[in-house]
Nucleic acid binder design. Structure first.
Lengths: 199, 199
DNA sequence: CCTACCGATCGGTAGG
DNA sequence: CCTACCGATCGGTAGG
């Protein structure tokens, strides 16, 4: 018999994270009360603390969990270093969109609520985010060097590219007419157009 | 002698709005306390209420004030209905960026804190925002009809275009190396590239 | 514009 | 996981 990690505990914690994420997104971290969260889960407020240590712990887990998801999606998308840089960039865009649409509530929290992290988590988080943006910046810079891409300012292009993508959680609806893969494809197409070398 | 609107009153209220806007942006509306705001202004918390009626009143004024600024900038940019649609769109983009950079704190509050408005203000605000987005959508739709622009989905293009622009307040620094007009110009250039008909 | 204060609500804990 | 509760802090008010 293999020992099992007690399933109910894990699942309760996951439930808390999931419900809290939806509330953090809808009302913001500061405006979400632990009592409201408890009520949504059918618990009393005090009972939450048998599963978690603090309100911020939930936020921490959501923000850093998403960071990890973005990094691993990016790594996979650019795994083939021999591929044309336009292809790598397209795949990175599509991978980013896939993470965003897979859990748009968590993504919205990742994008907007991180500032409620206290130090040193906040600084660590910003460093991760900068590193992720640098990945896109590097692809664009290298694509410009090889002549595949064309832009007067790679950093600027990377910033606006991620901006377009990161607005997605604020309008994406899982039951909308566009499937995640369609959205990913169109965004990649349109954004690459803006910086592709047409000569 | 012409009667004067008592200047100190107006200016105190404007000071409160201005300082509150900076705090709302930095910490979020819910996490900003009236005591913190009062301290920054050299007042006691209770004294704020000789100038304002409630915390939300400030948020209301900021959100709806910015909405007005965006609308009038857009109207001016598209005043010449005979101009090519690509030109009108470029001017609308530049006008939008100008509003964003002129008061990036207020813009950030406009973009992210409106959800703390209570009803019916919240619904009114969203209606205004939708109407503004529709302005861009219409320009793109008409530009596509005349053949000046090219995109498979005007609504989608409008959404991503505004997304790129609206990320600006989160990275724009008034003392950065790019002047507002440079930013406006580059953004317009890059974003129009993505949807311009190159045939 | 201040002092003094209100009721409500917050995140979190002790003990079971 | 609940009951009962803690100290702290919240937005806002009365009276001057």
């Amino acid at each position: 018999m293999t020992p099992e990690i007690p399933a109910p505990v894990r699942s309760r914690k996951a439930q808390i994270d999931h419900t809290a994420t939806a509330l953090f997104r809808a009302r913001g971290f500061a405006a979400t009360s632990m009592r409201e969260l408890a009520t949504k889960l059918g618990l009393e407020a005090g009972s939450l603390y048998s599963h978690i240590k603090s309100k911020e712990e939930i936020l921490h887990r959501v923000c850093f969990g998403l960071a990890e998801a973005f990094f691993s999606a990016f790594a996979e998308a650019t795994a083939n270093a021999q591929a044309p840089l336009a292809t790598q960039l397209r795949q990175a865009i599509e991978a980013h969109v896939r993470v965003l649409t897979q859990d748009s509530a968590a993504s919205a929290v990742f994008l907007h609520e991180w500032r409620h992290l206290s130090e040193p988590a906040r600084t660590e988080f910003l460093a991760l985010r900068d590193r992720y943006e640098a990945g896109f910046r590097t692809l664009i810079t290298r694509g410009t060097a090889t002549g595949e891409l064309h832009t007067p300012d790679a950093a600027f292009a990377a910033l606006t590219l991620l901006a377009s993508l990161n607005w997605l959680p604020s309008w994406y609806r899982p039951d909308g007419k566009l499937a995640p893969e369609d959205i990913a494809h169109r965004l990649a197409e349109q954004l690459l157009n803006g910086i592709r070398n047409s000569q």
